[in-house]
Amino acid sequence: MSIIETHNLTKTYGRIEALKGVSLRVEKGQIYGLLGQNGAGKTTLIKILLGLVRLTEGAATLLGQPAGTVGVRRRVGYLPEDHQFPHYHTAYSLMDFYGSLYGVPASVRRRKIPETLELVGIAGRMHSKIKTYSKGMKQRLGIAQALMHDPELIILDEPTDGVDPMGRKEIRELMATLKQSGHTIFLNSHLLGEVEMICDRVAILQRGQLVREGTIAELTQQKGLYVLRLAEGQSFPVEAVTQRGYTVRSLAEPPGAVEIAMSDGQTIDPVIQLLVERGLSLRHLVEQKQTLEDVFMKTVEAAEPGVDRQRRRGAARPVGGGN
């Protein structure tokens, strides 16, 4: 049974199509990242899963049950983007309030609240009013409230927003710990570096459509691009390699290195053979990989060139969509 499964999920707000037939599957124990530009439909997708927004067409299930039902929500923890906690609460009283809504017994709440707040690093201020907290502290509290009832699925919308680098590292470690203990995490973040570091699988949404999906390795793999460097004092046989149909480009860093690009069907082996035949000594050979950011930018640009510029000019955003 998949933890999250959507099939041809569609959501329209009047004439605006926020989601266009999104189908994805998240398995138990995964950290699944959802990427996309502002307005791509990420938050709409999450809100449909939680029942905050009604879907127009398609189907969505969480933990084997229809998305958004009361029974499902009991088993899910959620940190919304741009959340606003009631200012009259302290961290403790807020956790107590939300814990009550989740049906956590009072005795368990008394034990779990300090534990969970300790986990996110704000236990020392748990009796202070939330209005005195920094943005990072509020974010940590947001994560804590999503965890306190020990949910099977944790949905985090921009969990590291406003958190300092040290705090981000702690949150990443926390997510890794949660994963190890069998939790499934569905993560929506703009910080591609972080997503790359912690996610098992990633989906990229663009204008409501799922344009790419796969593991980090699958997405960042780049076939046919190698960086190569010879021993000091030896020069690379650019002409001979080019004559064999390869594209060679000198790199400034590291000194003396070249980048070799191959066409479809070519391998690096003939180049290495040539170097051996000429008695040249190979010191560095690495298959070039791209970052998730590279993948994201290429994917977005390929799907719809210039979308960001259009959005900045004031294109309509769907109601309820914070993405």
Partner: peptide, 18 residues
Amino acid sequence: PNMLRKGSIDLLLCKPIG
């Protein structure tokens, strides 16, 4: 209205209550 504010209502509606 405070309960229905964007950012607040999400935190309540995601809880298991109608």
